[in-house]
Design a protein around this nucleic acid. Structure first.
Lengths: 143, 143
DNA sequence: TTCCACTTGCTAATGATTTGCATCTAAAAA
DNA sequence: TTTTTAGATGCAAATCATTAGCAAGTGGAA
């Protein structure tokens, strides 16, 4: 039994979210799914779209999808938003020299959320984000 | 032996950084030290300064201080930068309902940085940031 | 007290996001 | 299939935080 192809997966994603499967949205999600393996900026996505969707549309679609939890907005770069498709829980390692971002599967102890919830007296902790800042191998060589 | 007062601490901080102790900088640091206990936006600081320093000066001073590592720029809010005086290592818990930010002293296992460094093949990891997102008690009641 | 590199306060750019609006179009209904 | 319309898109203009440019001040070393 063959695995459904990427395009189908995208359609299903949109259908499940009760969003219209417009060509623009399909392409944008397709790009997030196949062309990028790291958080990308709206500008980058728009460039990858080669004129098939407007920059404004990209902003709107990403906003819609992130409100639905299908896309995550990453707050690392303080002057532009980065987005990634919400997949498996993971974190990021950022090279402070070249800006490269790597996915990190290592996570904190599962009990940490609850421990923190008690210490700050929150009603609940829904998620957490963890970023590591350092220098990647390429940049270390260059310096 | 009395502990040096806040103003003196601020002077020492500026002197150690080889920066001119202008009234504007002194007040801004004083505000970070005494009036705020959470990351604040430049706008907030400027308001607290009640006209004693320009918004542009605040931006420049914060930039200078963060380049020296005396102030930390927090990337949580994706549409405005937040700053805090660099003190003890800590993290943050953010209420996604009201935006309130609490300091979190709990940290990850000390060996995590090294573990991640190896997994992403970085030359080094210099720091990490950890944010918890949830709902504070007040907001939970309101909902 | 003098002098000058460092600072500050304006004002005018920038640059990323948003918003308004007329025009389309996906897809539910007939 | 055709009709119908709520939801989408594209373009242009408006926002808003952050930066730059510059002339006018001023810490603080000499």
């Amino acid at each position: 039994m063959a695995r459904p192809d990427k395009a189908l997966q995208t359609l299903e994603l949109l259908r499940a979210a009760r969003l219209r499967a417009t060509p623009q949205r399909r392409l944008l999600i397709e790009l997030l799914r196949t062309r990028t393996h790291r958080p990308v900026s709206v500008e980058e996505l728009h460039t990858l779209g080669t004129g098939k969707f407007d920059l404004t549309t990209a902003y709107r679609t990403l906003e819609t999808l992130s409100a639905l939890g299908l896309v995550r907005r990453i707050a690392i770069d303080h002057n532009r938003a980065l987005f990634e498709l919400a997949g498996e829980h993971h974190h990021h390692a950022i090279c402070t020299s070249c800006g490269r971002i790597e996915d990190v599967s290592t996570c904190v102890s599962p009990s940490l959320d609850e421990k923190v919830r008690k210490s700050v007296r929150f009603s609940r902790i829904n998620s957490h984000a963890l970023e590591f800042f350092g220098v990647c191998t390429k940049c270390a060589v260059r310096v």
